[in-house]
């Protein structure tokens, strides 16, 4: 075990940035946006697990597990919503859904 925590965090931040970039760039496809969110959540889990290994306590891993449960709930709802919206407008382009305009 000679992996520096800093390298783990750099890997996680790269992953997070990619996920964020995916979410920002793929506005034409809501499913790709959700995938970006999954990538970001994985990056966060990686930080938690790395920190757990750094200090040798189980809490970080536990939070990774909780994030996973949370993600499954979020994904199920989000995908249900995607199905619902697609049924209404026959598209997955997020720019079409602008009823929140103030």
């Amino acid at each position: 075990m000679s992996i520096p925590l800093e390298h783990v965090i750099i890997l996680a931040s790269l992953l997070f940035a990619m996920g964020l970039g995916c979410t920002v760039a793929w506005r034409s496809n809501v499913i790709m946006m959700l995938i970006g969110i999954e990538i970001m959540l994985n990056a966060v889990m990686l930080v938690f697990v790395g920190a757990s290994a750094r200090w040798g306590v189980a809490d970080g891993q536990l939070f990774a597990l909780l994030i996973m449960a949370l993600t499954s709930a979020e994904v199920s709802l989000a995908l249900a919503m995607v199905v619902y919206l697609h049924r209404r407008k026959k598209t997955v382009n997020t720019d079409v859904f602008d009823s929140m305009k103030g």
């Binding site: 000679s2 800093e6 750099i10 931040s13 970039g21």
Partner: peptide, 22 residues
């Protein structure tokens, strides 16, 4: 965003590269 985030995190993380404890 990627440049900013990775740059920032790199800066924040590279202060002292200490290996993890055994």
């Amino acid at each position: 965003l990627l440049v900013v985030i990775t740059g920032s995190m790199g800066v924040l993380a590279s202060r002292a590269a200490t290996p993890l404890n055994a």
